[in-house]
Structure formats: C-alpha cells, structure tokens
Design a binder for these strands. Structure first.
Length: 368
DNA sequence: GTTGAGCGTT
C-alpha cells in the first residue's frame, strides 16, 4: 500500500444546472479517470439541487487532471466550474492526520437522498450515484470483491415440520432452545453480513423467510426492536392466523409478518403513515419483561431472583410442557404475557395486542 | 446559485 496522501482526491464542481444528475456528472468526469463518488448537494428543505457537487476520484492526480481538462465543459447548457476541493466534510473519510479532530466513526455510506422534491425537467437529479467510498478503483472481473462472501448454498432450505405443527410455532420453539449467548452471536453475524454485504444478506433473508422471521422474533425477545416496528413493516391482521403447515421456503408458506407480497415492499404509503407514532410510552402498558433487556442480555448477570412462579399451575398441561423447555427468564416473561387479563390486553395498542395474541395462540391454543 | 450533515459512540 502506498502511503495515504491526504491531498484532495475530491473536486468541487459548481454552476451545475438543477436538472443534472449525479450519474451525468460521473459520466462527464470519468473522462478524467475512474470516479469514486459523486455528491450533488441538495437543499433539504426544497429538495432542489444547490447547483454544486463534489466529485471524488481514486487519486489526486486524476482530480488534478479533471480540474485542468474539464474546466468549463458545458453540461445541459451551463459551463461547469471545477476546482480542487478545499474543505472536507468533517469526520467523514480518510483525512489522515488532517483537520477534523474526531477519528472516523463507523459511518455508513454517504446517504444523500433528498426525497423527490422539485420536478426539474426530465429525470430529476435524485437517485444517488453514490456508493460507499472505497480506496481502489474498480478492476476487471478477475479482481475479487472486497466483501465477505458467504456460501449460502451450504444452508438447508428448511426442515420438515412434525405433523400438526405450524411454521411459526416451530420457529418460536426452536428459538426458545437457543441460549442468549448464541442468539447474540447470530445477531452479530447477521449484522456483520448486512453491513459488509447487504445484497447477500437480502438474498439470504428473502430465500429463507423462516430465518427472517426467527431473527425478528429474536429481536423482539431481546428488546432490540419495539413491537410497533411491525406496524411499519406491514400491518398485521387483527387476528394473526398462524399460517401454513409447511416450512416456508416456498412463497405461499410465508409466516405472517414477513410481507407475503411479491412486489418489493417499501415504507408504507405516506399520508397517514406519520399519523401513527410509535406508542413507546405505553402509559398503561405493563413494563417490558425483565431479563431480556439489551443491557443485561447475555451478560454475567442472571435474571434477578424472582418469586417462584405461582401461576404455572393455572396453565393447561400442554402449555406447561412447552414452558418447561424454556430457560427460566423466558418462562417468567411468557408467564407474564400469558397471564395478562383481558382488560390489560385491551389497554395495549393494536400491534402489541397482536403480538401477545400470537404468543397466547401458540402456547395456550387460544387467543383470548 | 458557489465548499459538504446529524435517527448517534465499539
């Protein structure tokens, strides 16, 4: 590796017409050499281009060359003004020993996606040419990608279910046999895969919906996500019916909350979307079950000694059996949930209600 | 019209 030069690989481009896209700029400037990243700056209020941009190359020489050669090139009728960039955007990227005091945070890709504001004529500038800044230009096909590749083909599609069992049920039970430590490991691996290789992570999750389901449920258990998140993924039918008798690799065997729609689903249609703020406060909601908070999760602190479970006997034998296979802290939690009175349940918001109903359905065989 | 943000710290 050559010593990192802290000189600017980035040029400042001004006088850009409002309707020019980052792709167009990248295309223009690739005449000087491979372009690493282009960021047109937008006014977050209006969504309109501010008329200037930063174009990053892979090396300083190319940047200089661009400044020399692409000065005043006309783009959509205006002449660009091109200079080496002076100021850098804070603790963003590789300024080794240069200004910004703070060492780089693990910040993700530079997201610039001002939502589709002004309809500048013909193909708005939005869309993001940007990709995570890398240090080396793209090579030919023989260059191995610098991401974690995982062999997905090694994974089984799924195991057959016992007769009479349904998928969600089995997933929950399987999950219950996983120790908190294991669960944390899996979460960490998944997070790593997602950050280093999002595309493959997506493939994995869509091809193994049972995994997606299990991970989500695990996140609920670990209090990593709030149940209200479900609302934002897909509204859950009021009486979540545990679907399907088969493991889910096939499309129609999806468990209930991974969206079963065939179209890629994105955030729910706007409009009323913001009208339903997550009811985190839950004034009359019971406190979250202890033992699975992120702070204590998997740590050396075992669940604080709690009074012996008294309500166990109130459950049907089948439920007792199922509970008996669980670690103690989970038993406590489930018991709390299963023993909520109808009044208490009614006090919850719709999503929480739905989750609890589902748990009850699984363990008690009845939602009410 | 001309130099870059901000849901957050292993």
């Amino acid at each position: 590796m050559p010593p990192p030069t802290s000189a600017s690989k980035t040029i400042f481009v001004a006088n850009i017409p409002y309707d020019v896209s980052e792709e167009q700029l990248a295309n223009t400037f690739s005449e000087a050499g491979p372009v690493n990243n282009v960021e047109i700056k937008f006014d977050p209020q209006t969504g309109r281009s501010k008329g200037y941009a930063f174009v990053q190359f892979y090396d300083e020489a190319t940047a200089l060359s661009a400044v020399r050669n692409l000065q005043e090139v006309p783009v959509n009728g205006r002449n660009l003004r091109v200079e080496l960039s002076t100021d850098e955007p804070g603790p963003r990227r590789g300024g080794r020993g240069s200004r910004g005091g703070i060492p780089g945070h693990p910040g993700g890709p530079v997201g610039n996606a001002p939502s589709g504001g002004g309809g500048g004529g013909g193909g708005g500038p939005q869309g993001g040419y940007g990709r995570p800044a890398e240090d080396t230009p793209p090579r030919g096909y023989d260059a191995p990608p610098q991401v974690n590749r995982v062999d997905l083909s090694a994974l089984p599609d799924g195991a057959p279910l016992p007769h009479g069992a349904n998928a969600t049920d089995s997933i929950s039970k399987t999950l219950a046999t996983v120790t908190p430590g294991q669960m944390q490991d899996v979460m960490a691996s998944m997070k790593s895969l997602i950050t280093t290789n999002p595309e493959q992570a997506r493939q994995l999750l869509t091809s193994k919906p049972q995994l997606a389901y299990a991970l989500f449920q695990a996140m609920l258990l670990m209090n990593i996500v709030d149940p209200s998140v479900l609302q934002r993924i897909q509204p859950l039918p009021a009486t979540a019916p545990p679907p399907s008798n088969y493991p889910p690799p096939a499309q129609n065997a999806y468990p209930s909350y991974p969206p079963a729609s065939s179209a890629p689903s994105y955030p729910p249609p706007g409009g009323a979307g913001y009208g339903a703020p997550p009811q985190q406060g839950g004034y009359n909601a019971p406190p979250p079950p202890a033992g699975y908070g992120t702070t204590s999760y998997g740590a050396a602190t075992p669940a604080p000694p709690q009074p012996p479970v008294s309500g166990m006997a109130a459950l049907p034998p089948s439920a007792q059996q199922a509970l008996a296979t669980l670690p103690e802290d989970q038993q406590q939690m489930l018991l709390q949930v299963l023993q909520l009175t109808p009044d208490q349940i009614n006090a919850l918001d719709a999503t929480q209600k739905a989750s609890i109903m589902q748990l009850r359905q699984q363990f008690l065989g009845t939602a009410a």
